[in-house]
Design a protein around this nucleic acid. Sequence first.
DNA 1: ACCCCGGATAGCCGATCGGATGATGCCGGC
DNA 2: GCCGGCATCATCCGATCGGCTATCCGGGGT
Lengths: 211, 211
Amino acid sequence: MAEQRIRVVLVDDHPVVRAGVRALVDAQDDLDVVGEAADSAQAVAVVGETQPDVVLMDLSLGDGPGGAETTRLVRELPSPPHVLVLTTYDTEADVLEAVDAGAAGYLLKDAPPDELFRAIRGTARGETVLAPSVATRLLQRAASPVPKVSPREVEILRLLARGLGNKEMARELLVSEATVKSHLSHIYTKLGVDTRAGAVATAIERRILRP
Amino acid sequence: MAEQRIRVVLVDDHPVVRAGVRALVDAQDDLDVVGEAADSAQAVAVVGETQPDVVLMDLSLGDGPGGAETTRLVRELPSPPHVLVLTTYDTEADVLEAVDAGAAGYLLKDAPPDELFRAIRGTARGETVLAPSVATRLLQRAASPVPKVSPREVEILRLLARGLGNKEMARELLVSEATVKSHLSHIYTKLGVDTRAGAVATAIERRILRP
DNA sequence: ACCCCGGATAGCCGATCGGATGATGCCGGC
DNA sequence: GCCGGCATCATCCGATCGGCTATCCGGGGT
């Protein structure tokens, strides 16, 4: 009973991945790949043209707008499709950003094909589908709230990544050394670290600093 | 004229990627996918059975031995195939490790299919094939007086990014604290910094560490 | 055979960091 | 109008870091 086939559009900058998903999905009776896109602009255009039920969205699209931003654009179209994120990473920031942008699901690329198919069907029905590892992570974070880093603290982090000492930061920011240390203490608490090196690494990982 | 078809084995823990590469490669007249493996042990077994000309190797294989180690194992088999690394990352450490393990080429997964096919054919002929971005990076390192960071120093950098103190690193690496400090001093010199935080930032920027 | 380099080790010392504690002023939301 | 978050500043003190010098060993290249 494939009277109502689910129409799928792929968005991924890797040709290999597009070919793989297409090969797997097209082999299913009830699923149809009706379009592909390699970047954000293409994605919006293709989705507009093909009116799919589900969009499989990679988060890293090379240059230009990323998958999260593209998800937002796609969801703002008239009669928008459900978006299922299919990506390699499950960083906390990535997941939150994608969900905030309107993604209905989040799968990792190492998921077995069966799980992918089930996720597509579920997403088409409007369900929320999360990869186990992602769900686990979300629950952990939900328990411990993620404190946001203030603008001033980001400035400190930038100087920190340049290897400045407290005294130098103080001079750079025109404040006292005590203030710098105070900011640093807050940063440590918020990022859950207790050293400068750890703070820099975590800040980059959390995308607070650009590498 | 496909009298001498090139036999290819895929090693990748992502089913999606295997399906994609298989779909693309099998569509070529002169290329044949004769086997797949999802982890190191499978890879060695499949390569031994199928005696392929080329192995497409992902560097991240989930748990267990990684792609570099697997490359080494495969190359130690009798009449070993050429190994073409096909992965997402191109950090200096990854490339050097893979080449050291006996890889004949290094491609990124965002490469267009044509480039992939050419790389497979080149590798089968025993040529060395590098992705443009990888080649560029290698040339830059070779030309500019960027002192290479030793494997041990990379280890130190990894722990450093996790925020460990010298004492903790020493325990982790089973060496004395003095040794750790010695390594750190060398790292500072090589990276042109003088603090731990700066070292982490520079290492990530230089892609010695992955964010 | 020789030398250089990476890796490991040691001790010294001044500078710096990190944590604890406490205080002030400002702004925005409830 | 009060509370909380942000930014600012101050002091104290133990732990740690970073720079320096010097030694030892094993492997790879000349």
